[in-house]
Design a protein around this nucleic acid. Structure first.
Lengths: 232, 232
DNA sequence: TGACTTTAATCATTCGTTTGATTAAAGACG
DNA sequence: CGTCTTTAATCAAACGAATGATTAAAGTCA
């Protein structure tokens, strides 16, 4: 007869509450979905990494698909917390007005935050990989992330870009330019492996992230001065 | 395991039925691996899309894994053909020497080629997605692509960068800068879905690719003039 | 004919989900 | 206060469906 004695409190630790199990499952799902893909991850892997039972996935999230959506929501909350440090606590509130130099400084700070998070922080790897996989085959999870992060963040950056250069925030040119700024950073996470090989690095830590920031910031400055100089 | 030992007769001839099956399987594998991931794609899906029998995958490639490697080789050949148009037929040969203006023109041309291929051409979607998935969990297929495309192309671009700016080709700064140039373009393919939504586009065709090129080329010019102006 | 290629059927795994039993805590009630 | 009932949560076990691989037979073409 299956008794709880078979699972001694040592391995079970404190009797995990519902929320703890939920959180552990999300963390495991995020890591595994990001690393091996949704289809490449089995519910047994997830339950094993989370030290939870297989059935708990269905119980808490309705199934594997529900866990994916929960991971997306968790990503939104995480990134919004990071973005808040550089762009203000509320992305939907109107952007604070600032002069061109101050706006440029905000852009620079945002770039630095983004690099330190996306490129250097290990947990960003799971998040970015999760998002990248969603991007290639959009599900409901992508909608959650787009509405919660992509759209408001990009819109805010375009706002600041206008303050820095005078170019209209919602013009195609501004929007595309902001995408290029994001893209050049995100690429270092997505193409991490080739970058490591080509650079002769073994990891992207503090020093390497600083080198990346150096180049990205130089690019930003060059583009900014170029845009301020001429009329579109 | 009767894996086909050698390549089919290289001499140009009417593709045999065997070669047609091979090619169809590679095309189907590339598309499905890119769209749904390696684990998310079943051999039955592949065979179905290729109008071939399930067993033919094992026969021609030794199994699903062998098909993945064959897809990687196919990608290398495809991209090398595209790169040859902008960077010369042989990426491993020493770069042609040119003045700063000519070198800048080559970079601009390479950027245009890259955008027209990566961003606009539909078949690039499958290729990029395939590569992106490999990047996040490197297998032997990534080695094939890195050695065949990433390394030689990046090295060549660094060479041209030196000719355009005077910055040493193999310096960290140059290598990272070239990565940012590539990243800002590739991002439009990887993050295609958010770009479409944010831009209000329904597709990225000729006109949209031109708008992207416009911005990317402006960025390149701004960075180039910035780098030429100062000493590192 | 004889080597090459395709086909259909079968194999053992592995998958996500469901099930019914079990536990512990909270609620109901006299 | 003590007892009975309900609820939420977890667990091991098992199910049917799918997967990748294999095999022997049939087909194809020079």
């Amino acid at each position: 007869m299956p008794t709880r004695a078979a699972h001694p409190p040592a391995t079970q630790a404190a009797p995990s509450s519902s929320d703890q199990t939920r959180a552990a499952l999300i963390r495991a799902g995020l890591r595994l979905f990001g690393a091996k893909g949704f289809a490449g991850t089995s519910t047994r892997d997830i339950a094993g990494l989370a030290n939870a039972n297989i059935g708990s996935i269905a119980y808490h999230f309705g199934g594997k698909e529900g866990l994916r959506a929960a991971c997306a929501t968790h990503i939104v909350e995480t990134i919004r917390a990071v973005a808040a440090q550089a762009l203000g606590p509320d992305l939907t509130a109107p952007a604070p007005q600032a002069g061109p130099e101050a706006a440029a400084a905000i852009l620079k700070a945002a770039l630095e935050r983004m690099i330190n998070f996306v490129v250097a922080r290990p947990e960003a790897g799971e998040i970015v990989q999760f998002i990248v996989r969603e991007l290639s085959q959009p599900t409901a999870a992508l909608d959650i992330i787009y509405d919660g992060v992509f759209e408001p963040t990009h819109r805010r950056l375009c706002d600041i870009w206008q303050q820095a250069t005078g170019e209209p925030a919602e013009s195609d040119r501004t929007k595309l330019t902001v995408f290029t700024l994001i893209g050049q950073v995100v690429y270092f996470r997505i193409a991490r492996e080739p970058v490591l090989r080509r650079m002769g690095w073994t990891t992207i830590g503090k020093a390497e992230a600083a080198a990346v920031l150096d180049v990205a910031a130089a690019n930003l400055n060059a583009i900014l001065t170029d845009r301020k100089g001429r009329k579109p």
